[in-house]
Simulated scan of single mutants.
Amino acid sequence: MGLAETYLVGTPVWDLAKKVLHHDPLRGTPVSAPTVEILGCPLQFKEETVNFAVRKTRVSKNANQLQRSPSRFAINFHRYPFS
């Protein structure tokens, strides 16, 4: 139970599985979840996926900009002495 709990508990998929089963197999406890909440889980997954893709695209664009013109982003270290 310890190993499974380490990887499953707190993940969105595990939370959905418990809601669908109306039972937590690891703890042996009942789980109450209305149908609306169960049906909303895939929409939440979709939203998280879209948000991740948007963040990944932004990071990729910034990395490409940096690669094209590194001098624009370079810090002039001799102007800012550390001592």
Rank of each mutant, 00 (worst) to 15 (best):
P12K: 11
D15H: 01
I38W: 01
F45I: 05
R58W: 02
T35Y: 06
L39M: 11
G10T: 01
C41Q: 12
R79Y: 04
D15K: 10
Q67H: 09
R27K: 12
N62T: 02
T49G: 13
W14E: 04
S32H: 10
K56V: 01
L8Q: 03
K46E: 05
K18T: 04
A4V: 03
L21R: 08
N76E: 12
A4K: 14
P81S: 12
V31K: 00
A33M: 06
K61V: 07
S83N: 13
L16P: 01
L26V: 02
M1K: 14
F77L: 15
M1T: 05
V20G: 04
N64Q: 13
G40R: 13
L3D: 07
N62G: 08
P42W: 07
S83A: 13
A63Q: 09
K19M: 04
A17F: 10
T57W: 08
E47F: 11
N76P: 00
V54T: 05
M1N: 08
E5Y: 06
V31W: 00
R72E: 05
A53L: 14
G10H: 11
V13Y: 07
A33R: 06
N64F: 05
V31A: 00
H23T: 00
T49W: 06
F77V: 10
F82V: 11
A53P: 00
E47N: 06
G2L: 14
L39E: 11
V31L: 01
A53G: 04
E37I: 02
I75G: 09
G2I: 08
A4Y: 12
D15W: 00
V9Q: 14
F52T: 03
R27I: 00
P12R: 10
R72G: 01
H23A: 00
P30H: 08
L3S: 06
A4R: 15
R55I: 03
D15L: 06
T35G: 05
L16W: 10
L26H: 03
K56R: 09
K18L: 04
T11A: 03
V50A: 07
R58S: 05
V13P: 00
F52A: 14
F77A: 14
R72T: 09
R58F: 06
Q44D: 06
E47D: 07
C41N: 04
K19F: 00
N51S: 09
G10P: 03
S69G: 02
G2A: 15
G2V: 06
K18Y: 01
W14L: 02
T35M: 14
L26C: 04
S71Q: 13
M1S: 12
F45K: 06
E48T: 01
W14S: 05
S69W: 07
R27G: 07
H23L: 11
T6I: 07
A33C: 14
R55K: 13
G40C: 14
Q44W: 05
P42G: 04
L16M: 12
T57R: 13
S60F: 05
F73R: 14
V20I: 15
S60L: 10
R58P: 00
K56Q: 07
P34V: 01
K19A: 00
